[in-house]
Amino acid sequence: MSTRWYPLYQRGNPQLRVFLPNFWMKVVKPKEEVPPNVVHFHVSNEMTEYDVRNYLKKIYNLPVVAAKVEMKNGNIVKNIKGFVTKENDYKVAYVTMEKNFKFTFPDVPLKPGMELLKQSQKDNEKTKKALTEKYQYRPGLPGWFQQ
């Protein structure tokens, strides 16, 4: 990726020659079932529909028919200190290819050790739930001690 900003073209300037643009595209798994000729991407925020179309056509020779981009709000989370913060916004591109094109998202294996981590997270939740159920009804105890 280039360290420069994408230079804005002004009339009269020499032709833009960018060797390492800031553009990137990442194939993502669609949240809903989509037709086999539709592919979803996360793209860099600067990209327009024309950029998406040209990127796929010119670099990868893909039979793009239509492209649509949409800006999505970043997830809103509460940090450990209790502040509400927002994660970065991101751009999603919905790209339709020709009818006979077929794409299925591959089964990406989890990174080594992730399965163990997920299992331990599940176990933690289970224990937490069991504890809350156990100590839910404690008459006489001030509310300060309640979770």
Partner: peptide, 10 residues
């Protein structure tokens, strides 16, 4: 049979 959500078909 096209069972996809209409929004994914524009």
């Amino acid at each position: 049979h096209v069972p996809y959500e209409p929004k994914s078909l524009y």
